[in-house]
Design a protein around this nucleic acid. Structure first.
Lengths: 185, 185
DNA sequence: GTCTATACACAGATAGAC
DNA sequence: GTCTATCTGTGTATAGAC
């Protein structure tokens, strides 16, 4: 077997995990390198800057949500109820599987009043999420009302994640999602 | 007039403003000192460490909320509707008067998965908030139901603050509060 | 492609003159 | 009580050997 070379993708994937746990400013390039058993020097061979890594991390994480969570909303062969139930399950797993809650909300509250660097990428994530929810809700509501409700759902989930982090208690998010299901189902 | 000496209280007050704008990790002792036109050396004469300043900043801010916002809930001479309206107004002002949204939510998402240092103080803030809302809601609901609803209200507000920060748009919080008023009133 | 070594800035914190 | 100077660690980032 030839010498295994680390791919850019593998590095970004492991960096997501570190950024989620430690936040953006608290994470150093050394931390990111360690996670892949690399040195800082090697890391800088692959990426220009920490900002660069973070942008790719956010984009990859957003792509994952699109493929694994938001896509469910568009499976028209399933009933609305099934799609809703499925998205709720996947949402819960996505925000609790690893520590750190919502990578995107964390990044907003940490960086948005300091710099604009990631705002576009962050807004894109929330737009994709809103669109998916609204698409499902259009069975019941008008387009504009569906988007309004979708925004409220997202706010409720994110608020629950804040409280989940505060009390280190996953049932807070679980309960919030169950309430949403009841209200919408 | 003798030489004006800076009090501990003044320093904490100005530090709240910096921490809110820049977050905990991104704020340096030099930043905090500059805000009061002091040097780092002088600053360390008043405080042992950055952690020390942050703890006092959170406590002072929590005290401010208790006196200026949460206290309204207990003014039994006012009608429930008046108290609710008043608290909503004050809540909006408190979270939008300066940039940075909710100091406490910011600190949770920034620090809670890195260290436990501030968890107690942060939990105390949210407990005081919940108690105030629940006290008002007990006119309508049972004690346990009132606390449940209070938690949900807090989650909705905090979620809206996340989205307010994301879109740099204060009307998002304004609308969320108006919805709450309608639902409860 | 990976390493060691290093440059340089800035962080938290302390010492001591005034 | 405030300052300047400094210690020590760590941060981002680069240079150059292998």
């Amino acid at each position: 077997m030839p010498l295994q070379k680390v791919t850019r993708e593998e590095i970004v994937k492991s960096s997501i995990s570190v950024f989620r746990r430690k936040g953006y400013y608290r994470t150093s390039m050394a931390n990111l390198a360690e996670e892949m058993d690399l040195t800082k020097g090697t890391f800088y061979h692959h990426f220009e800057s920490k900002e660069d890594v973070m942008k790719e991390a956010l984009k990859m994480s957003c792509g994952w949500f699109e493929r694994r969570v938001f896509s469910v909303a568009y499976q028209d062969e399933l009933s609305q109820e099934n799609r809703l139930e499925s998205m709720i399950q996947l949402t819960y797993k996505a925000f609790t599987a690893e520590e750190g809650g919502c990578f995107f909300a964390n990044t907003i509250l940490e960086t948005s009043h300091v710099e604009d660097t990631f705002l576009h990428i962050l807004r894109n994530f929330f737009k994709k999420w809103e669109d998916a929810l609204a698409y499902m809700l259009m069975v019941t509501y008008s387009e504009s009302k569906a988007h309004e409700v979708a925004k409220q759902i997202i706010a409720e989930i994110e608020g629950s994640i804040v409280l989940m982090q505060l009390h280190q208690d996953k049932t807070i998010l679980q309960n919030a999602l169950q309430r949403l299901k009841k209200r919408l189902g």
